[in-house]
Design a protein around this nucleic acid. Structure first.
Length: 503
RNA sequence: GACCCCUUCGUCUAGUCUGGCCUAGGACACCAGCCUUUCACGCUGGCGACACGGGUUCAAAUCCCGUAGGGGUCACCA
């Protein structure tokens, strides 16, 4: 390529559709996407579904959905097409077989008739002798006779790559630097199954070459595959792409993130009320940092600032607390209408009937909840009681224990009824004025009056400003709840006292 | 076990390539105080790290060697 023309960057994210989009994979996809966008390159989505029985349509939809939700849309791939397809690996079988035949024809690969059992036995033997197992290459130079004999026996055959065991293979990794592996630690590995179906280490370099991939950005768990893939490029006469292996994402214990850790899929976080902006921002900051001391990044800022040389080498732990903090920031940037839309489904899922609630009432409630919303799911804690019948909201035992220790609190609940009943009009200013006046007249501390009322009418000790709560509830509901509390609390509080320390 | 990678506050990280500006900076978390009807927000302050041991150097978080610890991979999966 002449002079000033720089080959444009082409990267790919190649998930296998065997589940959901794992957080680690999402980070890999994000790094690829950011790199492509920042370089004015092309981001390709390829589905590595090489006739794996675990591949399912459902998980493919789930992964696409997560990617789209994060905003990591692809320039070429399923749904959008492109001229370097097909983008489903299973549809590239003929191409893989063609390349395999080429290797066979040029003597760079050979058929192996060893059975699985034989290989297994050798492997176990090596392990018993504490030797590293490597294929002994006994099928490398079979005579015509032996071959015919095996064929006549009806043995199945796999295809192995003939590996030159001299020298070393160096991976010039854009994140890790040069990583060298002695060639004699490798062996003639199988890349075509008995049905002449290709294996991952073969399909990957073939497809990358066909799709013109310039940079392979993937997780470090692929590091040990890289030399083998480079070997294919050499055998086929191709220039390998540049590699960049990003560090793993671990759980808080420093182990690989697994299902046992609970939520490890992108959609799990969506379902827990997290925002895609927060996920992207958080994931980007795992192993990567900008040049300044910035923590909050818009997608555009990420695109502008992302470079591979600022990606670190050591694994990072996924910390939900920091994610939550970021999420709170992004929720705060939403309008009340947006927050209402976002939080609604969580109320419904918690069993609250909100379909008959007027939209503007809903928005006023969300507005009153304000920045208490760190995730949309928090709406249930802070506002669930607005959507529960006056005789059915639950009293939080901890709240009762803290604010109904003595008889004074109960007397507040009964005494305030009259004052509240007299408030007219029942609007914020009037409610606050009347209530404060009453408190002052009583001569008690504001908090020791307001909190018992809150617990009485909401069942909780946290929530929006109590005056907002009262107004939003409406006079009838407040009175009904006060009556209910006056009737039920005496029993509940003694019960709570009696049970204290048991649970 | 073999091969490969990694190692700065509890966590995410800046600083390491191009030794001195680092008595190591920021953020999350935590603790305390302020604000406040609660919670949350916000503000102020605090706690808190160069894994260890040797070198090299006038000077080392930064360079070299070793040790320890952690992780990843070792399929006819991807």
């Amino acid at each position: 390529m002449a002079g000033e023309t720089v080959d444009s960057v082409r990267v790919r994210f190649a998930p296998s559709p065997t589940g959901y989009l794992h957080l680690g994979s999402a980070r890999t996809a994000l790094f690829n996407w950011l790199f492509a966008r920042g370089q004015g390159g092309t981001y390709i989505l390829r589905v590595d579904d090489t006739d794996d029985q675990r591949s399912t349509e459902e998980s493919m939809r789930s992964i696409f959905g997560s990617l789209e939700w994060l905003g990591l849309t692809w320039d070429e791939g399923p749904g959008v097409g492109g001229d370097r397809g097909p983008y489903f690996q299973a549809q590239r079988l003929e191409r893989h077989q063609e390349c395999a035949r080429q290797l066979l024809d040029t003597g760079k690969a050979y058929y192996c008739y060893c059975t699985r059992e034989e290989l297994q036995a050798k492997r176990e033997h090596a392990v018993r002798e504490k030797r590293p197992y490597r294929y002994d290459g006994r099928c490398r130079e079979l005579s015509q006779d032996q071959r015919e004999h095996f064929e006549a026996e009806g043995r199945t055959k796999t295809v192995r790559l003939l590996v030159d065991r001299a020298g070393r293979i160096v991976v010039n990794d854009l994140i890790l630097g040069d990583v060298a592996v002695e060639a004699d630690t490798l062996d003639d590995f199988i890349f075509m199954k008995p049905n002449f179906g290709p294996l991952y280490n073969f399909t990957s370099p073939v497809d990358d070459a066909d799709m013109g991939i310039t940079h392979v950005i993937r997780g470090q768990d692929h590091m040990s595959n890289t030399p083998r893939q480079i070997l294919f490029c050499e055998a086929l006469g191709w220039t390998p792409p540049a590699f960049a292996h990003s560090p793993m994402v671990h759980n808080l214990q420093g182990r690989k993130l697994s299902k046992r850790d609970g939520a490890v899929g992108v959609e799990d976080y969506r379902d827990m009320g997290f925002l895609p902006e927060a996920m992207v921002n958080y994931l980007a900051r795992l192993a990567w940092s900008g040049e300044g001391e910035q923590e909050i990044f818009s997608v555009q800022e990420l695109v502008d600032q992302f470079t591979l040389d600022r990606v670190g080498k050591s694994p990072s732990r996924f910390d939900p607390k920091k994610l939550t903090w970021l999420n709170g920031h992004y929720v705060g940037e939403k309008t009340v209408a947006q927050r209402t839309d976002g939080a609604g489904p969580f109320l419904r899922r918690a069993g609250h009937e909100i379909d008959d609630v007027p939209r503007d009432k809903l928005e006023r409630i969300v507005d009153a909840v304000g920045d208490r919303l760190h995730t949309y799911a928090d709406i249930v804690t802070y506002a669930g009681y607005f959507f529960t019948p006056d005789d059915a909201y639950d009293f939080d035992p901890a709240a009762l224990k803290k604010w109904f220790k003595g008889p004074e609190a109960l007397s507040v609940v009964t005494d305030v009824r009259q004052t509240i009943a007299a408030i007219d009009p029942f609007d914020l200013a009037t409610i606050e004025e009347a209530t404060r006046e009453w408190i002052e007249h009583r001569g008690e501390k504001v908090i020791s009056v307001l909190q018992p009322i809150r617990v009485a009418v909401t069942g909780k000790m946290v929530g929006p400003s109590l005056f907002d709560v009262l107004e939003l509830l409406g006079k009838d509901a407040v009175l009904a709840r006060l009556d209910r509390a006056a009737a039920e609390l005496p029993g509940l509080t003694t019960q709570a006292d009696g049970e204290s320390g048991q649970s």
